[in-house]
Design a protein around this nucleic acid. Structure first.
Lengths: 224, 224
DNA sequence: GTGGAATGTGATATACTTGTAAGAGCAAAG
DNA sequence: CTTTGCTCTTACAAGTATATCACATTCCAC
């Protein structure tokens, strides 16, 4: 969450779909449609780059080489070519991963996450204090209050992570729901009420402190 | 896993890609871009060295000779030259292996592992306590619970070693699968479920203690 | 190649999580 | 202090992830 991704591909539909999906997932998206545009956008310092190999004006490999002269963030190649040779070439040019089309959104997201986490870890980030006695470990997806570990389910954890990353800001159920559930979510935002109740119930067993505040008629906010 | 590798090559892209890949696989990487830098970095006592033959300032062969005066760890030559003569020279200079570019990542990793294992074995075994009554012998790739030896297959062992080296941290199937099988592995991460079931079944026969915990919707973790 | 072990796959059962609905409880506005 | 509308609580239904099992495939040593 809170990461900036650069997506470079000449397939409009793919770009639209992917960036829509990833935005929903909380990423900030920059897009480019050809090699030259990509190089220009690189100046905005994305945290990770998704790069198509076949693009007009300058192909992905060449773009790759030039990117490396500018910044050092993870680069994931997207491509339809399946040959082993290409795979090696892509990686040799300095790419960090190689994803074959067609790919599943889920797999793509998993790999993006993996690379962002690795990048973060190599920069040495670990436990983050989100409030008072409450700590988050993003890579372990773990929440602790003092010495106690909060046993949260996936969505519960997502809500805590999302809200605590924007302390003091009020979000309505709709927005929270969008962020924490998938693109293909089935239910509606009323379930956020329930999820938050469950989180509160679990924190209550450990401490009296209230972390998530109800803002009447508007939504919820993380209490700093 | 948990090993320190020194990668010496003057090709920036290659270095970036390889060290990125090997870091993902859990190795700690040191890099050098020329002969002199290599000799300096050797002082950090890597467990294994990947050495390019053609480098500025001092070529790989010369570096090799000087390394041997300092430490005795496996040295793998990386080179584009395919001639038999060079191969013989490289090995004569004290190199332990000889890998021709372009090489597949999978093969490289396999060879690195092979040499590290051989090295550890010749240095004698040491048992590491991974939990409670459970001990790992990295060089023998053996797991014991009390006096009982766990008969694990290769992949099963890899999973136990990987998870136990990061106790308490949650990994999803995807990441476990990446670590434990080759980069271009054939199957998918669902098999991790099955492998973990098999590990659990084997430990169950010895003790009631649960070592691998399921974290619903997130993955698995080694119980501290 | 052949045979046996290891790994992967698919189907089904089970466990757990998330979503839904209905009523009770509360805060705000008149 | 009553009405209105939102939120909390509770119980349950629906949905999703994991465990298990049997079998297929791949790998490896011979």
């Amino acid at each position: 969450m809170g990461y900036k991704l650069l997506l470079a591909d000449d397939d409009r539909d793919l770009v639209k779909m992917l960036s829509g999906y990833l935005e929903l997932k909380g990423y900030e998206m920059i897009t480019a449609r050809d090699g030259l545009e990509t190089l220009k956008k690189v100046e905005e310092n994305p945290d990770l780059i998704l790069l198509d190999i076949n693009m007009p004006f300058m192909d992905g490999m060449e773009v790759m080489r030039r990117i490396r002269e500018q910044i050092s963030c993870p680069v994931l190649f997207l491509t339809a070519r399946a040959e082993e040779e290409d795979r090696v070439n892509g990686l040799l040019a300095g790419g960090d991963d190689y994803i074959l089309k067609p790919f599943s959104l889920r797999e793509l997201e998993a790999r993006i996450k993996a690379h962002l986490i690795r990048e973060e870890r190599s920069r040495g980030r670990k436990m983050v204090r989100a409030a008072d006695e409450l700590y988050l470990d993003y890579s372990a997806r773990e929440v602790r209050i003092g010495e106690h570990v909060l046993e949260l389910t996936r969505t519960e954890y997502e809500i805590v992570e999302f809200l605590s990353r924007h302390p003091g800001q009020v979000f309505d159920r709709e927005r929270i729901y969008e962020r924490v559930s998938g693109y293909d979510a089935r239910g509606d935002s009323r379930s956020v009420t329930e999820l938050i109740r469950r989180i509160r119930k679990k924190t209550e067993e450990i401490t009296d402190t209230e972390y998530i505040e109800t803002v009447w008629g508007m939504g919820y906010r993380w209490k700093k």
